[in-house]
Design a protein around this nucleic acid. Structure first.
Lengths: 153, 153
DNA sequence: CTTGCATCCGTACTATGGTACGGATGCTAT
DNA sequence: ATAGCATCCGTACCATAGTACGGATGCAAG
C-alpha cells in the first residue's frame, strides 16, 4: 500500500508517471490554484478522474489548455465563448471557417465597443472643455449638462 | 383619518402637494421601479422619510437626479463615481475644477480602454487574416496561435 | 512518526448593475 | 365595501470572473 520513498525524490519523478498536481498546473500556467478549480467548475478544463481519495492528477495538456484560455481572454473572448472555441477545437467535424467566423464576429464586437467609447470620450471631452474649472460646483457646466442633458439615443 | 375623495381626482392632483410615488418617479425617469429602489440602497438618491406605513413620497428633484445618474452612466462613469459626482455637486465648498478633473480622468480612462481594445482588435484581425477558413479546426492557425501564443505583455 | 505544507471540497464572498419574488399592506375606483 | 393594481420590504437571483475560507485529509521529509 505504501511505496517506499527510495528512488522517488519528489514531485518531478512522480509526475513523469502520474501527471501534475493542481499546484503544479497552476504555477506552470501562471494562474492561481483557485482559478484552475474555477475553470474546472465552468467546464473549461476536464477534471481528471474524481479522486474521492488522494489527489487529482492532471495531464500536461491541462497547462496548455489554461494558457489557451488566458490567451483567448486577452483577445477579448469571454469564458463562455472560449468554451465554445474549445469545443470547436475538439470537434473534428467543425472547420476552421467556424473559428474564423467567431474571430471576425469578435472584432466586430470590439469595433462596436470602441465606437461607443469614442462617443463617450468625445461627449465628455466636450463637456470638460466647456468648463473653465473655476467657481462652485453649482455652476459647473459639466454637471449642468448631466442634469439637463440631451437624451442622446 | 380618511380624506374624502372629492376634489382629488387621482395621482396628478395629490402629487402636486405630496410628491411622487416610486412608480411615477420611475416612469418619469425612464427606469424600472426596482432600479429606483436599487439606487436608494446604493445611496445615490436619498430616500424620502421612511414611511413604515403608507407610501414614500418623492420630491420631483428625484427624477432629475435619476436622469443625472443615467446620463453620467452613458458618459462612462460607474455608480460609485457618480455617487462622488453627486457629493461634489452638493458640497458648496467644492469647485468646478474637481468635477473637471474627474471628467478628464475619465476620458483618460476611456482612452486606455480604447487602446486595449484596439490592440485586441489588431491581434485578432491578424489571426483571422492568417486563416483561409478551410480545413479542420485542428489545423486552424487561429487556434494554434492561441495554444502556443506569444506571451504578449 | 510526527510535522507541516499541499490538496480536496463545498460554500461564501468580492465587484458591477441591476432584476425578480413573495407576502403584506395602501389606495382608489367602482 | 371591496376588487385589484401599486407599493413596501427584505431577500434572492442573474451574469462575469474570479478570490477566499475552513475543516478534513494526503503525503513526503526529517
Amino acid at each position: 500500500m505504501n511505496r517506499p520513498a527510495e528512488g522517488i525524490p519528489g514531485d518531478a519523478e512522480k509526475d513523469r508517471r502520474t501527471g501534475l498536481t493542481i499546484g503544479q498546473v497552476a504555477r506552470a500556467a501562471g494562474v492561481g490554484v483557485e482559478t484552475v478549480r474555477f475553470y474546472e467548475r465552468k467546464g473549461l478544463i476536464e477534471q481528471p478522474e474524481k479522486p474521492m481519495f488522494g489527489r487529482r492528477s492532471y495531464p500536461p495538456e491541462t497547462v496548455a489548455r489554461i494558457r489557451f484560455i488566458r490567451r483567448a481572454k486577452e483577445l477579448g473572448f469571454t469564458l463562455k465563448e472560449i468554451a465554445e472555441l474549445l469545443e470547436l477545437r475538439m470537434d473534428p467535424g467543425k472547420s476552421c471557417a467556424e473559428v474564423r467566423a467567431r474571430a471576425l464576429a469578435k472584432t466586430a464586437d470590439i469595433d462596436r465597443k470602441i465606437e461607443t467609447l469614442g462617443r463617450m470620450r468625445r461627449a465628455l471631452a466636450d463637456l470638460a472643455s466647456a468648463c473653465r474649472g473655476r467657481g462652485p460646483t453649482i455652476d459647473c457646466p459639466i454637471l449642468e449638462a448631466m442634469e439637463e442633458g440631451e437624451e442622446h439615443e
